[in-house]
């Protein structure tokens, strides 16, 4: 008290307790708000362009909004909502076919290319000279960086009927295989999977290559000293060490393939014939956004899209459970010691 008085006499006033608290509170508040401020631009963009459309699509899926009643139907009123679209989907005679197509497309593209081929390329290119490996990987990136319309036009030229089609003319013809037909009509699935797979493989290729490069060389050296074959080195050293990227690529690419349709749309548009290569996402697009006679059904198409979202969420949960993502992302046990 005495000291305070002396200070006051000398014109020195200590900060009041309340002021100190206020300052402390303010800086604490600032500290707490700062992350949100940094996040807010992304949050606004995601809200505007993802969450709001998602909610709208969800609501639309319960309505019969289409070209005939657009601007007339008050689709936001619950009185205009019903489950009719969902009933229509599940009683549609082509529903099993479209679902089957989707599963075939996702499973085969994933197994042969997005994971399988990606892994093979990564393994090969990390076991040859660094420069050659890099060049080879760069080649595999070309399909991904080529504009999709140009890319599909190239495939159409490849698959064209004889004598125009490159495959027919220079490969099947000289070997005496096939009758020179338009290969997109005779083997549409082969091309749908190849076209998507050539793009998809590069994603896993990059992740796997970097993961393999990150494995300390001592492990493979030790295995060689122990007399392990190449296959044994891959099976018992490389694969366990890249388990995390493997599972991530499988999960991510499954969801990505489920929702992809643009290459198929440009290549076969779901044909030839009736729904031969029509996948779920393409049906949602066809119903919601295009039709020869303009009977565009936004409500019905939205219902197809919502079912796809549900399938995607279920698949994601299954992957999380089966692959035990929780264990993968927890802190290494060694750090706890």
């Amino acid at each position: 008290m005495k000291r305070r008085k002396q200070s006051e006499e000398r014109g020195i006033f200590p900060l009041s307790n309340s002021l100190k608290t206020r300052n402390w509170n303010f800086s604490r508040l600032q500290g707490r708000l700062a992350p949100y401020a940094f996040l807010s631009p992304a949050l606004i963009v995601i809200t505007l362009f993802f969450f709001i459309p998602l909610v709208m699509v969800f609501v639309l899926s319960f309505t019969n909004l289409d070209m005939t009643n657009f601007g007339i139907l008050e689709w936001w009123r619950p009185a205009n909502w019903s489950l009719d679209n969902y009933v229509k989907i599940f009683t549609n005679r082509f529903f099993p076919k479209i679902l089957g197509n989707t599963l075939i497309y996702v499973a085969l593209t994933l197994a042969f290319f997005n994971v399988g081929m990606a892994l093979i390329i990564a393994l090969i290119t990390t076991h040859i000279s660094r420069g050659a490996g890099f060049a080879f990987r760069a080649l595999w990136l070309l399909p991904r960086i080529t504009p999709v319309v140009v890319y599909i036009m190239m495939w159409k030229a490849l698959a064209g009927p004889a004598p125009m089609g490159i495959i027919n003319n220079y490969l099947l013809g000289p070997l005496g295989i096939g009758r020179g037909e338009y290969l997109l009509n005779t083997s549409p699935w082969v091309f749908v999977i190849l076209v998507n797979g050539f793009i998809g493989a590069s994603f896993g290729m990059i992740l796997f290559s970097s993961a393999i490069e990150a494995i300390p060389k001592e492990y493979s050296t030790a295995s060689k000293v122990d007399g392990a074959t190449t296959w044994q080195t891959i099976r018992y050293i490389v694969l366990p060490m890249i388990k995390w990227p493997l599972l991530f690529v499988t999960t991510y690419q499954t969801l990505s393939l489920l929702t992809s349709f643009e290459q198929i749309m440009l290549l076969t548009d779901g044909g030839p014939g009736l729904y031969q290569t029509e996948v779920w996402a393409l049906t949602a697009y066809h119903r919601a956004l295009t039709s020869y006679f303009g009977n565009i059904q936004w409500g019905y198409g939205s219902a197809w899209a919502v079912v796809l979202v549900v399938i995607g969420v279920i698949m994601a949960i299954i992957y999380l459970r089966v692959f035990k993502f929780g264990e993968l992302v927890e802190e290494p046990k060694i750090d706890r010691l």
Binding site: F70, G71, L289, T290, Y292, F293, G294, I296
Partner: peptide
């Protein structure tokens, strides 16, 4: 352009 998008364009622009 295809008929489907052509008609949608009119309907949406009207909206």
């Amino acid at each position: 352009t295809d008929w489907g998008p052509y008609v949608s364009e009119f309907v949406l622009s009207y909206g």
